[in-house]
């Protein structure tokens, strides 16, 4: 049978609360906030699988929990409930959210790569571009300075940043260049899963095209699986094999990307798609 691979990432029943919750929460949610106790249910019972070589798109209203989901997977946000499994961590048999902090660092450095919506979260703006990448490589255990420089050159070239600028700090770079440095940093240790949160938002169209093109080539070349959050349905259409739609912390619908865009079922998805035409 052609489809036997296990998922690279499997998330089960992820819930993230901001606040302590109360017995009334379930019945008193207004959008994602409990009107009785004020707890925000940023992610509410999220389940998803990402398969090898696949790009899974995530769309949804602002505040619907997309970044919360990404940051939970990357250990930046602590889940209230739920499990996540990576095929590269104990063959997907152990919940990564129960790992020790040392194991979590290893997972972050060796198995996953993250590109944040806000480059300030992903880069040290005062270090050079090369040092940003080196930091990630060192975190994975390498000590050879010569090899690190070579690798930084290779990665920056792959994202079309001139090696002559590698010793400059990202704070001097444009938004598009910062995103590209983040991408090369995320790829530094050959991750099997790449998390991309709005990588092209705020970039002008020609730079967007460049970043998208790059993402697609990297994915094809390295066979990396990707979780891709984007507001831009054109980006989703071009890149994502399947797409998940989020609203108020929940997944309201999911399907093949062209089906979500051409035959959306949920009122929110219809509004999202039709406002585009």
């Amino acid at each position: 049978m052609p489809l036997t691979e296990q998922p690279v990432l499997s998330v089960k029943n992820l819930t993230v609360h901001y606040g302590d919750g109360c017995p009334l929460c379930a019945a008193h949610l207004e959008k994602n906030r409990c009107s009785a106790c004020g707890t925000v249910w940023a992610a509410n019972d999220i389940c998803l699988d990402v398969f090898p070589g696949e790009i899974l798109g995530i769309v949804g209203e602002s505040g619907s929990g997309k970044s919360t989901l990404m940051q939970s997977i990357y250990f930046d946000v602590e889940p209230t409930e739920g499990q996540a499994y990576l095929s590269d961590y104990y063959k997907g048999e152990k919940n990564i959210w129960m790992a020790s902090s040392a194991e979590k660092r290893t997972i972050k450095n060796n198995i996953m790569g993250m590109v944040y919506q806000n480059p300030i979260l992903g880069l040290r703006m005062d270090y050079s571009a090369a040092a940003n990448i080196a930091e990630k490589i060192i975190a994975a255990g390498s000590r050879n300075a010569g090899q690190m420089t070579e690798r930084a050159k290779e990665l920056l070239t792959a994202v079309e940043i001139l090696t002559s600028r590698m010793s400059e700090a990202p704070k001097n770079f444009s938004g598009g260049m910062q995103q590209r440095v983040q991408i090369s940093k995320a790829l530094a240790n050959n991750p099997s899963l790449l998390l991309l949160d709005e990588v092209t938002t705020g970039l002008d169209l020609s730079v967007q095209a460049k970043v998208l093109d790059l993402i697609r080539k990297i994915i094809a070349e390295f066979g990396i699986s990707v979780l891709l959050v984007s507001h831009d349905l054109a980006v989703i259409r071009m890149l994502a094999d399947r797409t998940i739609v989020m609203l108020d912390g929940k997944i309201i619908e999911s399907g093949l990307t062209d089906q979500i865009l051409e035959d959306p079922q949920h009122a929110y998805t219809q509004q999202l798609v039709h406002s585009l035409l």
Binding site: G255, L256, D258, Q259, E262, D263, Q265
Partner: peptide, 9 residues
């Protein structure tokens, strides 16, 4: 055709 292709449910 789109139902066959699953572009439509």
């Amino acid at each position: 055709l789109k139902c066959i292709n699953r572009t439509y449910l």
